Simulated scan of single mutants.
Amino acid sequence: MRVSLGASLDDGHRCTAQAQLTRQPQTGGPGAHHHDVLHIPTSYWSLTKEYIWSVTKSQGDVVRVALEVLDEQGAAGVSMRAIAQRLGVRMNSVLWHVKSKSRLDELMADAIVAGVSLDGLPESWRERAAEIMRRYRRALLAHRDGAAVVAGTYASEPATLDTAEALVAALLDGGLPEREAAWTCWSLLYFVLGLTQEEQGDPHSLDVGGRAALTRVLPGLTDASFDERFEFGVGKLLA
């Protein structure tokens, strides 16, 4: 005898599996009673586990695990499959929460920027803007390939918008016109993202091929003092 088992899903689908009902004799010789044993296939329990995981876990759980994979394997190692394997579920369960890889990238980027604290900022508009960028850089450096992940997205998410709001507010407090404040915000972000990507990338030598001007400034071009280069660049943009 076969029995159909099912679990209803929130999206209206139903996962089913066939269970085999068999009759087995009890020990005790001739005339012993029989009892029925219901054999439920492993696939049914697997599907049920997937459903329970999908409805009990959150989008934040997926993003947290994605950042763990990022820190261990770098941006190239982050995939839906890698996250699903880490969680012990199928890819569909991950997609239930984040829908696509590009959406996951946006959520990861915002989670990285969420590391920027906006508490206790200086009163001076220029120093306030500089301090926001220092904290922004530290948040990027807190994760392997953090700058590459953030630079590869255009995330209109809470932490990203809150950081931009604080930065633009500082620039407006400094008397910059609206358009100049917006463009200075972009310039600061682009500079820090680019510098931090270089800092997190593989070291490399620079061969200028005998070009006179580049040869003269080569020590400065290859200087690995990223802290000093950061302060110099931000200072120039806020001058």
Results as ranks from 00 to 15, higher is better:
Val69Tyr: 12
Lys101Ile: 00
Ala129Asp: 13
Ala147Gln: 08
Ala151Ile: 03
Met133Gln: 15
Asp71Pro: 04
Ala148Thr: 06
Ile83Arg: 02
Val78Thr: 02
Ala147Leu: 03
Arg126Phe: 01
Glu72Cys: 01
Val116Ile: 12
Arg128His: 10
Asp105Leu: 09
Gly77Glu: 06
Ala139Gly: 13
Ala75Asp: 02
Glu157Cys: 01
Gly74Thr: 04
Met91Lys: 14
Leu107Ile: 01
Glu106Ile: 00
Glu68Pro: 02
Asp71Cys: 07
Val89Lys: 03
Gly146Ala: 12
Ala155Leu: 01
Arg103Trp: 05
Leu107Ser: 00
Leu104Ile: 08
Ala76Met: 04
Ser100Leu: 05
Ala84Glu: 10
Ala147Tyr: 06
Ala159His: 14
Ala109Val: 03
Val116Gln: 05
Ala147Phe: 05
Glu127Met: 14
Glu72Val: 08
Tyr136Ala: 09
Trp96Tyr: 15
Leu140Met: 08
Lys99Asn: 11
Gly146Phe: 06
Ala148Leu: 12
Arg137Met: 05
Asp119Ile: 03
Gly152Lys: 01
Val116Trp: 07
Gly115Ser: 09
Ser79Gly: 07
Ile112Glu: 00
Ala76Arg: 15
Val69Asp: 06
Met108Asn: 00
Arg137Ile: 08
Ser124His: 15
Ile132Lys: 12
Gln85Val: 06
Gly152Leu: 06
Arg103Glu: 07
Met80Ala: 10
Lys99Met: 08
Arg126Cys: 09
Ala114Val: 07
Ser156Trp: 07
Arg135His: 08
Glu123Gly: 10
Asp110Thr: 03
Glu131Tyr: 11
Lys99Trp: 01
Ala109Ser: 11
Ala114Arg: 15
Leu118Arg: 08
Glu157Val: 00
Arg128Pro: 11
Arg90Asp: 15
Ala151Arg: 12
